[in-house]
Amino acid sequence: MKVRVSVQLKPGILDPQGKAVEHGLHDFGFAVDHVRIGRLIEMDVPGTDPSEVKAKALAMCEKLLVNPVMEKASIEVV
């Protein structure tokens, strides 16, 4: 099954990259706020049971995909 793991900086963690992009958007006249930049990891995971596949993705997050000091993830099984 296709799995999408979206990794975001935790709230409160400074995101200088997001800030820079926010300033860029302001330069184009877009009135945006709180721009945060994350990472989207997409993969095929063997299995047919969405909850089982999600559990595998969660284990991957804990082992490697996410650094819990600064990041959190949301998992979507498609």
Partner: peptide
């Protein structure tokens, strides 16, 4: 990252 030390190193504030 190996959890031998606490914390994490983020992008410099100045980018």
């Amino acid at each position: 990252e190996a959890q031998l030390l606490p914390g994490a190193l983020l992008r410099n504030e100045s980018l």
